[in-house]
Design a protein around this nucleic acid. Structure first.
Lengths: 241, 241
DNA sequence: TGAATAGTGTCTATCAGACACTATCGC
DNA sequence: GCGATAGTGTCTGATAGACACTATTCA
């Protein structure tokens, strides 16, 4: 390692970008902002920006996300995804971005007015066919795959549910994120049988129609053992490059 | 995103650091270099350095590693681990590092003379009790945990074996990395039964003593399904922050 | 009553782990 | 033969998936 004068190291900028996922209208959606300047003027991009001198990477990701949404911080799950640093990924200069994965429950509140030209929750299915700014399509795909994989062996799916939810609502989250249909009876037995996954509220609801269903909150379990595997899909190479 | 003049973004340096693991003398070892200057003068650190203007992050990690070792590039496995960017992790200036995990077979060749004050393969067990430079103890721990987790559902353990190896040698790799002992008979049935995991060479060897054992090369399988789970250990939250 | 959803019981194929047993080498 | 390691066979308990069946609501 060299010294600490600016001339000793290459000029580079570091940003964070966030793949923020939620479920709206039975679709997996990502938060996107419309670029108000070149390059990629008018294209959709992941929310993000420069890391400030005094903040940690996690703090920067949280800040950038809250600048664009009304998500209450205590219902937001954030984890680092990966870093992207191809030399020409930003034509202006060398920019290395640290990407984050965010998961949040559906909220009635629309996107608040950030400083971007526009922001919206867009269906991932459409985004994957669209032209996004920079390498954000790759980052988005990596984020979605990470979420899919983590749903197998963690209770993270509950972060996409409201505070209190039924087993059917939780199952719907899995079905939408994985793009499969699951046997409701086996799913029920599995999730209610995993100690610490769900914490009963003692209440019931009929909002799904039919017989009243018990409602639950997310429990304290962090790791699902045994896991809840995707049908017809092998596990994935989780975290990597 | 702002413009592209240096004054528009915070001054920051980006480095790569590599957690390079191998097995030597029945111990899991990591490649470490001794720091030849302040800060942390004389402490052991992960091999790493600045990302150059024209190279990708993966290229930078590969280059830094090959500067310190004789590992043939075609027997080296590298994947991105995570990025670390706490504001004060380097007292000289803001440095964000992208960490990589590297796996390589045991080689007779010692460490070649790089530009560091010294380099060696050090047992992970000892390193985890020692004081390392910067936040390298955390990075090392994350790298080791990543390797342990990936051994469950990928055939990556073969990257720590020589080109041709026996089932017993492969099992020894698992036992050392996981720190457990495995039933040799069940292990044998499992790995030889997974299509594409091992490719028989047709040769046998008696180097382990006893009845001659068949030798194998790594097959083309990328994902182990079903996985080979660690005994008494839950799966892990693989890649994250 | 019928339609809809919640939740339980049960059967079967598969698999992990334990471990008896056989095979083939060096000495 | 003896000791060592390679490799196979078999049993048992746990689990995933399929699906019959019962429970409780609303219209």
């Amino acid at each position: 390692m060299a010294g600490y004068r600016p001339s000793d190291y290459p000029a580079v900028a570091v940003t964070v970008d966030v793949v923020a996922l939620t479920i709206r209208d039975d679709e997996l959606c990502a938060l996107m902002v419309r670029r108000g300047q070149a390059p990629h003027l008018g294209r959709w991009a992941l929310p993000g920006g420069f890391v400030r001198p005094d903040e940690d990477l996690d703090q920067a990701a949280t800040r950038e996300l809250l600048e664009e949404t009304d998500i209450p911080a205590d219902r937001l799950y954030l984890e680092q995804l990966a870093s992207y640093g191809a030399p020409q990924r930003d034509p202006r200069m060398r920019v290395i971005t640290v990407a984050y994965l965010g998961l949040a429950p559906t909220l009635p509140s629309p996107v608040a007015g950030g400083d971007a030209a526009g922001a919206r929750w867009a269906p991932v299915r459409e985004l994957m066919k669209a032209r996004l700014a920079f390498d954000h399509r790759t980052i988005l795909a990596d984020g979605v795959e990470r979420a899919r994989a983590k749903f197998e062996y963690t209770p993270l799916a509950t972060t996409l549910c409201p505070d209190e939810f039924t087993v059917a609502e939780l199952r719907r989250v899995y079905e939408i994120v994985w793009g499969v249909s699951l046997d409701s009876r086996n799913f029920h037995r599995k999730v209610t049988g995993a100690d610490g996954f769900l914490e009963p509220t003692g209440q019931t609801t009929t909002r799904d129609g039919g017989r009243p269903a018990q409602t639950y909150r997310a429990g304290s379990l962090r790791l699902l053992n045994p896991p809840l595997l995707r049908p017809n899909a092998p596990p994935e190479p989780p975290p990597e490059s």
